[in-house]
Simulated assay, not measured.
Amino acid sequence: MGQLDGKVALVTGASRGIGTAIAERFASAGAAVAVSARTVDATDARLPGTIGDTVARIEAAGGTASAHRADLAHAMDRQDLIESVLDRHGTIDILVNNAAVTYFTPITEFSARRFALMFEVQVTAPTHLAQLVIPTMRTRGHGWILNISSIAACHPRQPYQPRAMRGGTVYGMCKAALERFTSGLAAELQNADIAVNSLAPNRVVPTPGTVFHQLTTENDPESEPPSVMADAALELCYRPATEMTGRIAYSADLLRELGHPAAIP
Rank of each mutant, 00 (worst) to 15 (best):
M1K: 04
G2I: 10
K7N: 12
K7Q: 14
G13M: 05
A14R: 07
S15W: 12
T20G: 10
A21V: 01
I22A: 05
A23T: 01
R25N: 06
R25V: 07
S28G: 11
A29K: 01
S36Q: 01
A37H: 12
A37I: 12
T39C: 08
V40G: 08
D41V: 14
T43D: 05
L47M: 09
G52M: 12
V55L: 11
V55H: 11
R57T: 13
G62E: 13
G62P: 13
G62D: 15
S66R: 15
S66T: 14
H68G: 04
R69N: 11
M76Y: 14
I82M: 12
I82Q: 07
V85Y: 11
L86P: 00
D87T: 10
H89G: 09
I92V: 15
A99M: 07
F104A: 07
I107C: 10
I107T: 14
E109T: 09
E109V: 09
E109R: 06
F110T: 03
A112Q: 04
R114F: 13
F115Q: 01
F115D: 02
Q122L: 13
Q122E: 15
A125R: 02
Q131M: 09
I134E: 08
T136D: 08
T139N: 07
I145N: 10
I148Y: 02
I151D: 11
A153K: 06
Q161F: 02
R166E: 11
R166C: 10
G167I: 14
G167E: 11
G168C: 06
Y171D: 01
M173C: 13
C174M: 09
K175V: 12
E179M: 14
S183I: 14
A187Y: 09
A192S: 09
I194Q: 05
S198L: 07
S198C: 07
P201I: 04
N202W: 01
R203F: 08
V205C: 01
T207E: 07
T210W: 13
F212A: 04
L215R: 07
E218F: 13
D220T: 03
E224C: 03
P226L: 04
A230I: 01
A232N: 00
E235M: 00
C237V: 10
Y238F: 15
T242Q: 04
E243A: 09
I248D: 02
S251H: 00
A252Y: 02
D253L: 08
R256M: 00
E257R: 00
G259L: 00
